[in-house]
Amino acid sequence: MMETILDRPRIGLLPVVRAAQAALAQGRGFSLVRLGDGEGAMLSHDAPHMGEDIAFCLNIWFGDQAIDGDDRRAMARGLERAMREADVLGLPRRAQLQVSMRYHEVFANLGRVLGARHPVVGDMALHFYLQWSGALGALVRDARRLVLIGCRDVAGQFGAHFDVPVVQWLLRGEARFPGIVAEPHWPIGYARMMARIGGVGPGDLVLVGAGVLGKAYVAGAARRGAVALDMGSVFDGWAGIISRDGRIGTGAEFSIPHLAQGGPADEAMRERLRAYLAGTNIADGAI
């Protein structure tokens, strides 16, 4: 399955945006779930050869909190259900397979998790392109309500730039950048958030930045008729936190005012987006 999906043409940003807009207008659920190296580790959490990798990821997410095998299995079940239910599955590019074995594990597990289902696939960096292109701003304006699930307090910024009701549900972030919530994300915060998600519905746009556990929030919101997008570390960019070296910055293209303006910051950014917007195959990293 790895070669088949790696070589399959991936949809670009524009089809994703149009599908999300249609779902908002029609009151249908829609989900974008992205899979990176951390998800690869979680999918193979019980494989002997992945022991060091899963320990590395758990330390990033939860610090020195004790996470046992039952915890990992429960997290993996939520992730796998989100993968099976996703309308668009964002996958790593071929070039990323050279970076870490954890990216390989994403593809190694797809057949087991998805079975006969052939998902619509895009790039795992779709969250960046939704932000950089400004296209996310159009979705916010189309929403009945904006629901933010993450560890960054950015509701005020969205409220200042968009005429849309904004609800924010905060969680504890990863160990290096935990944010203002002291309550552990797993299992207490997770259980509370899954219960809260029962309150979303058709016409809601739900943006999630909550690590590997956030995939279950995306799926849960979509099941209730919301449009739910896995925005990941873009939340950090909105809050001015550089949590991903070389990928998250503090420039205008990572700001909420940029979304309100509705377009790329400059011609160089437009050039970088053109191939993606055209829906070309970006499996080899051509963006």
Rank of each mutant, 00 (worst) to 15 (best):
P15F: 02
D153E: 14
G179A: 00
Q261A: 15
L259R: 02
R84S: 04
A219I: 01
D163C: 09
V167G: 03
N281R: 11
V106D: 07
A228G: 05
G12S: 03
W238T: 06
Q98P: 08
G27P: 10
G214A: 00
V113H: 05
A95N: 15
A22H: 03
D236I: 02
A108I: 01
W169S: 10
L130V: 03
A222N: 03
V147W: 07
G249D: 15
E267V: 11
A191K: 10
S243H: 01
M1D: 14
P48R: 01
G40S: 06
V16K: 08
Q157V: 14
R77E: 10
L205M: 13
V120Q: 14
P178V: 01
A216N: 06
A22E: 05
R102L: 13
T250L: 10
G150T: 02
G251Y: 02
L14M: 11
E3G: 07
A125L: 13
Q21M: 13
R84G: 05
R274M: 07
G232T: 10
M193A: 11
W132Q: 14
R270T: 08
E267W: 13
F158N: 02
V113G: 01
V181Y: 00
H127N: 13
G225I: 05
R152C: 10
G237E: 05
Y129E: 12
Y129W: 15
P119C: 01
A116Y: 02
H258C: 07
A22P: 00
L6K: 02
I241K: 01
D236Q: 07
M101K: 13
D7L: 11
R81K: 08
G209E: 01
P48S: 03
V166S: 04
R141T: 11
M2T: 14
L126F: 14
V154K: 03
G40K: 05
G262V: 10
S100Y: 00
D53S: 13
L91Q: 00
E105F: 09
G232H: 12
D70Y: 09
A19C: 10
I149S: 03
